[in-house]
Amino acid sequence: MEIKFTLNGEQVTIIDEPTRRLLDVLRDNLGLTGAKEGCGEGECGSCAVLMDGRLVNSCMVPAFTVEDRDILTIEGFRDQERFKAISRGFEKAGSVQCGFCTPGFVMAAEALLRQNPHPTEEEIIAAIEGNLCRCTGYSMIVEGIMIASREGDGLW
């Protein structure tokens, strides 16, 4: 089946099985490997992308459902000003270790800050609950998002 959608601001068309996972479409058909497969069952958030501005686990999204939708991945987001603010926050807080979970956390941070530019610590903790990280213990990621929201004030 032919599926058309907006990917990182550009129109794309792919031809594939309707039930193929968005994660595979991104990684295999389109060569965007920033979204990772940590579990393949919606549990870890390493594959997270934004669909119409909402955080989704791309391993749980069948390709046909993205028709006419707007998908943003780390590859599209990394050129934006907001990304730079998140990146600076993560750098200051030491939020990155092995990095496998990182693009997913960045997308989760962006989804949160779009909704709520000044989240409390509890709100950040709740917003990243669907993203697993085995390296950091989370506090340093929470702090990274906090710094991004503070120092990137006005961007969201």
Binding site: T33, G34, A35, K36, E37, T73, I74, E75, R78, I86, S87, F90, E91, V96, C98, G99, F100, T102, P103, V106
Partner: peptide
């Protein structure tokens, strides 16, 4: 840091 946060780091998969 940059490679990882930008999603550029290439893991074996």
């Amino acid at each position: 840091f940059d490679d990882k946060i930008e999603g550029r780091a290439l893991y074996a998969g």
